[in-house]
Design a binder for these strands. Structure first.
Lengths: 107, 107
DNA sequence: TGGCTATTTGGTTATACTGCCAACCAGCCA
DNA sequence: TGGCTGGTTGGCAGTATAACCAAATAGCCA
């Protein structure tokens, strides 16, 4: 595989990896509805605030979200709202998995 | 967060996690063009064949691909071809990251 | 059956990710 | 200035991933 292709694949994988965590997906879905401060995300994920902060920095390093400090609070928002658009297909896969498991049970 | 939502998020994250590796993305892109046997994927990823086999089992466990043995060979194919449809947005994010880095340099 | 090819599995080592705690920093206000 | 609130950072322990090698398995054919 040539280095350029390798690099392109690594970049894409990096974005996916940043998204591939339940708490981070939850955060992204919240942000899809509008910007949120860290304390709000802390409240509705239930995770320790330092954990939330680290998740946010993962998302920020990946370039998926951006932040803005206003007074004491830091607000985060999606940089590309389209980022969640593929979840429809992910749901298809999951539904198929469920169907398959049911079929296996009934077998 | 209620357990059901937590579970849904974990399932989604699982799919993303399975995709979040350069070699596995490469494999998925190959499969998007049609089924391939392990040896073909081995040839064009350049990875050790046992490594390719393990990557394929990750994808299979996630329900993203399915396999079929025909003679000595095992062929893999995408279960949901739409799975790569979101890469367009991932590319947007990457392009923005590049732009941002360039801007930072020029600053 | 014996040997060959294609693939999977087990074991090992190195590396990376998570979550939690404690300490620290920044901005506001009395 | 001192103290408070909101967030970030560093460090640690536990867990999970990745790649490689060696060994095992499955199907074909002589």
């Amino acid at each position: 595989m040539d280095p350029q292709r390798r690099q392109a694949l690594t970049a894409r994988a990096g974005i996916l990896k940043a998204m591939a965590h339940p708490t981070r997906l939850h955060i992204l879905e919240e942000l899809a509805q509008g910007e949120r401060c860290v304390c709000e995300l802390h409240a509705d994920t239930g995770a320790d605030i330092s954990t939330v902060s680290k998740h946010l920095s993962v998302l920020k390093n990946a370039g998926i979200v951006e932040d803005e400090k206003r007074g004491l609070q830091v607000f985060y928002r999606l940089r590309c709202p389209c980022i969640l658009s593929f979840l429809g297909c992910v749901e298809n896969v999951i539904q198929q998995n469920v169907d398959r498991q049911l079929a296996a049970l009934g077998r």
